[in-house]
């Protein structure tokens, strides 16, 4: 909160400054034209970012017969939430929801705790061969065995077709560890020293002192981690082949999108068939929109909280150490 106060103050100062130097900042015709173009460009671009989601949304809450005729373009008509209720009937969607929500919660919590703990450990100079072990972790950011060896490795460990494949590989994240380490190093060392003098153990110092103090950076990595888990698609696609009860939400959505477009492709074979297919395709279309909406809503919900943190996160990422 302190930050926003500071920002308000800055804005106020800026305003006063411009008032004081009004003459110097007199707007010319060129400025006006520039401003119009500038504002217009950003308005249009922002609209392209918002409109698709708005369009999806109004189509899911409108009367399906109007959607079918393509009449819902800018505002909803005949508002109802039947489509959202109909999602209960869509097979396997519930399972995907449970898988995705649980992996987001469990995976994020474990990742944050591990990053905090490892981030703390690698700041300790007295650790046995500290710099070697730190490099051992960090270097994994720069190479990658590749998709297939990784897949074979998961098979080797018995993790294919296994829920744990969503959780375990994502726990140790070197990038997040670096972020936490950098942050902890900025905490004054005297705090820790006095705790040690009072007879605290490493674990106590970590849980009572370091963990609470590094909450801002932990919130940042938690948010990014949660979004990553929520959006995960590749691991489900590659490691869960055939085990459809374990598919994540995004994977499920991908399958629905593809089937729906297939139905569209079959359309126009024979007249009577085409009629039935049309019906089916349109139903599929609305359901597709609704599922998309449902999987995007959580992102929109956490987004206001995220905004506060991601600027900090991206700046810290620039100062790696």
């Amino acid at each position: 909160m302190a930050k926003t106060k500071q920002e308000k103050l800055d804005a106020k100062r800026e305003k006063q400054y411009y008032k004081k130097h009004k003459k110097m900042y007199r707007t010319t015709v060129g400025d006006v034209i520039f401003n119009i173009i500038n504002y217009a460009f950003f308005t249009v671009f922002t609209l392209t970012c918002i409109f698709p989601f708005y369009y999806l949304f109004i189509n899911t809450i409108s009367d399906n017969s109007l959607v079918k005729r393509g009449l819902i373009n800018f505002y909803p008509k005949g508002i109802n939430i039947d489509n959202y209720l109909a999602l209960r009937e869509v097979g396997d969607l519930g399972a995907s929801f449970i898988v995705t929500i649980s992996r987001t919660v469990i995976g994020t919590v474990l990742m944050v705790i591990a990053s905090a703990f490892v981030g703390y450990l690698v700041t300790k100079q007295e650790m046995w061969h500290r710099s070697f072990w730190y490099r051992f972790l960090v270097i994994t950011m720069y190479f990658n065995a590749g998709m297939i060896p990784l897949y074979l490795n998961m098979a080797l460990l018995g993790l294919t077709q296994n829920y744990l494949v969503y959780i375990l590989p994502a726990i140790v994240q070197p990038y997040n560890i670096i972020l936490v380490k950098t942050y902890i190093e900025s905490i004054p060392g005297e705090l820790e020293e006095s705790a040690f003098i009072d007879g605290a153990s490493y674990m106590q110092v970590f849980t009572k002192l370091i963990f609470p103090l590094s909450k801002p950076i932990l919130a940042t990595i938690a948010i990014f981690g949660a979004v990553g888990h929520w959006n995960s698609f590749q691991d489900s696609l590659i490691y869960m082949q055939g085990n459809s009860s374990m598919f994540t939400l995004q994977h499920r959505l991908y399958i629905y999108l593809n089937t729906a477009s297939n139905i569209g492709a079959i359309m126009g074979q024979s007249a009577s068939d085409a009629q039935r297919m049309m019906e089916e395709a349109l139903n599929a279309k609305v359901i597709r929109y609704t599922i998309s909406m449902v999987s995007v809503i959580p992102i929109f919900c956490v987004y206001p909280f995220m905004q506060r943190y991601f600027e900090k996160g991206i700046m810290l990422g620039a100062v790696k150490g």
Binding site: I50, N59, N231, Q250, H251, Y254, I299, Y303
Partner: peptide
């Protein structure tokens, strides 16, 4: 502007495709 132009970055590619289809 900043808030809304950042949103697409947090949407998965599958959802981007869903948007593209719509």
């Amino acid at each position: 502007v900043q808030a809304f132009t950042t949103i697409p970055n947090f949407i998965s590619w599958v959802l981007v495709y869903a948007v593209a289809l719509s």
